[in-house]
Design a protein around this nucleic acid. Sequence first.
DNA 1: TATTGTTATACTCTATAACTATA
DNA 2: TATAGTTATAGAGTATAACAATA
Lengths: 152, 152
Amino acid sequence: MAERRSTQAPHSARAELTDALYDFFQAARRARGRAAGDMAGGLSLAQYHVLEPLGKGPRTNRELAELAGISAPTATRIVDGLLDRGWVSRVADPTDRRAVVISLTETGRGALTKKQREYVARRRQIADALDPHEQEVAAGLLRRLAAVIEEL
Amino acid sequence: MAERRSTQAPHSARAELTDALYDFFQAARRARGRAAGDMAGGLSLAQYHVLEPLGKGPRTNRELAELAGISAPTATRIVDGLLDRGWVSRVADPTDRRAVVISLTETGRGALTKKQREYVARRRQIADALDPHEQEVAAGLLRRLAAVIEEL
DNA sequence: TATTGTTATACTCTATAACTATA
DNA sequence: TATAGTTATAGAGTATAACAATA
């Protein structure tokens, strides 16, 4: 393999990784598309991204918007939907009456936990394609790639 | 490092990779979000996914829908938008007058090529975070992970 | 005045159902 | 009848601008 690249570089490691990243992102996009409207679990991706931070405790609307990377009105709308399903509560903050405190209900915690377990199971399935040594290498590489992507 | 796992497995390679996959997908999601409404380049992600197959030649509406993983009416609507911008043409197929043939215009090919180059440049930036040997390893791992994700 | 949240409005992407034209 | 495409309709997710309440 390496000898083919000793005199020329028609397929440099850099170019191969660039291509592999394309394939990987494509695969992730398609998987995401398959899961995006996943109302089977009763929880859309956008709702999940708002619900997830609530797993660690109550948050204001502004905080949720920031954590989910969406605008405040969008957060309001998504929380409206979660309220309709009884997954969250929204009450005025007694210490700052401009703000609202959004919290998970018991039902909501159940739905969130169920979804989180599904996602963990899916990631484990992916991880299981590699042997233990490869898993260790892959974890390190993915962490570094994630850091670079964040900085982009 | 390995000795810590010799007697117990609180952080097995599998669990570490599962976590790393979470971080990586999160980073990719945020990057995607930043680019999704990217009308700066004048080309939304959905439009790009329809335009891309046209780079290899004309396609019917049904083919485009299938390749982009969307319904036929959605493809029609997106093609409507691309027509408005003068990036594609849509003419009746002479051999089967139920069908339409959608093709890139010169302007459209320019926009597509420009976007493709942007994406390649971004993936190269990511690849450049690793040294050549790591790039080779990473390419192989990502290809295998992509295959698993597709099968999920 | 500045901040927090909501309402009003609008646009994109998405789908299903109904319809037209052609095979 | 079956297929290709479009139109009609609906709903989620997204944003910005305007507004109300509170700090």
